[in-house]
Simulated assay, not measured.
Amino acid sequence: MNLLLLFDEDFQPDGTARLTGRRAQHAREVLKAEPGESLRVGRLNGLTGTGEVLENSPGVLHLRVDLTEAPPPRAGVDLLLAIPRPKALKKVLPAVASLGVDRIVLVNAARVEKSYFDSKVLNEAFVRELLLQGLEQARDTRLPEVLIRERFRPFVEDELDTVFGPEALRLLPHPPAAHSLQAGDIASATRVVLAIGPDGGWVPFEAQLLEAHAFQPFSLGPRILRVETAVPVLLGQVTLLKAPAP
């Protein structure tokens, strides 16, 4: 944990913050923070800074907080992701939060097992906890928005433009494509949407429907990657290509 996240309910009338549960336990047992020491803290969806330890007793961490710094800049990337295996999703969600993704739409697809929708990983509280872990790792405070859609075609035809906006550059990693990611005009894009399929890939109908809605197919090369590998690789490449030249 590289950042202790503070929630609105943690703050006291005098401006200090009192933390309980996992965060307080981490500060006591792992960080072994003593009164007078400073910890890196950040307010959820707000600024980051330092927290001076006033008390670190079993179950309670009391901090004097000074928040003056902006969190890391956003990546300018959204993600349309066919729901992966629950074990993979538990790795993907912290990763996308730590990489600064703003919006994640988890969508059904032909090669998504219907049982995935019954997994506890899709529980709102479970999703939030995984995202918070990613923010703590990256010293970020901005919580991504997560939407879950059980019907692929209605989402693409009826909601996609509203959710992602018409101005975003839409990219479709799809093995049959001939062009590389570098061939796209990513550097000039203000926002990018990546549509990443399940381990078995998008079926032809799904890929064609996405292309009909302005997604540009590209290839990652001859290697076939699992979703939990493909997501951070793609996000890293897109973020690098979007970055202004030094």
Rank of each mutant, 00 (worst) to 15 (best):
E150K: 09
L122C: 02
K120H: 14
E150C: 05
R151L: 14
A138T: 06
I104K: 01
F164C: 10
L135A: 12
E124L: 15
L171N: 00
P144W: 00
V112G: 04
L147V: 07
D185G: 01
P154S: 03
R111D: 03
V112K: 00
P154D: 07
R149K: 14
Q137Y: 09
P166Q: 05
L135Q: 11
E136H: 08
L171C: 06
A178K: 11
Q182K: 03
V156P: 05
R151A: 15
E129Q: 10
R111N: 06
L169M: 13
Q182W: 09
H179C: 08
L160G: 01
E145Y: 08
G165E: 07
L132T: 04
H179T: 14
V146G: 02
A125M: 07
R151C: 10
Q137M: 09
S119R: 00
S180N: 13
S115D: 00
A177Y: 03
V156R: 04
L106I: 01
V121D: 05
G165A: 04
D158A: 11
D161R: 11
P175M: 06
E124N: 12
L147A: 10
R111H: 10
R151H: 14
P176M: 00
N123Q: 12
A110E: 13
L147E: 10
A168D: 08
F152A: 04
R128M: 07
Q133E: 15
S180A: 13
R151I: 05
L106T: 05
N108G: 07
A138G: 13
D140G: 13
E150W: 02
Y116W: 10
P166A: 05
G134N: 09
E159T: 04
F155L: 02
G134C: 10
D140K: 01
D158Q: 15
A168L: 13
F164N: 02
R149M: 03
Q182L: 09
E113A: 12
L122T: 02
I186N: 06
A125W: 09
L172T: 04
R149S: 05
F164Y: 14
L181Q: 13
P144E: 13
F117E: 02
P173D: 01
D118Y: 06
E145F: 14
D158T: 14
S119Q: 01
S180Y: 10
S115Q: 01
A110L: 09
L160A: 10
N108A: 08
F155W: 04
Y116M: 00
L122F: 06
F164T: 10
R153D: 08
G184M: 15
F155I: 09
R128N: 11
V146Y: 03
E113I: 05
E157G: 09
F126P: 02
F117H: 00
E167T: 12
Y116A: 00
K114W: 00
V105Q: 03
L131F: 11
T141A: 12
S119P: 05
L171H: 07
D140W: 08
N123G: 06
D118T: 11
P144A: 07
K120Y: 14
E150L: 04
P173K: 02
E157D: 15
A110P: 01
E113S: 07
L130P: 14
S119M: 01
E145Q: 15
D185R: 09
R153S: 09
Q182H: 05
E157W: 15
L135R: 11
T141N: 09
A125H: 05
I186V: 15
A125L: 12
L122P: 11
G184V: 10
R111A: 02
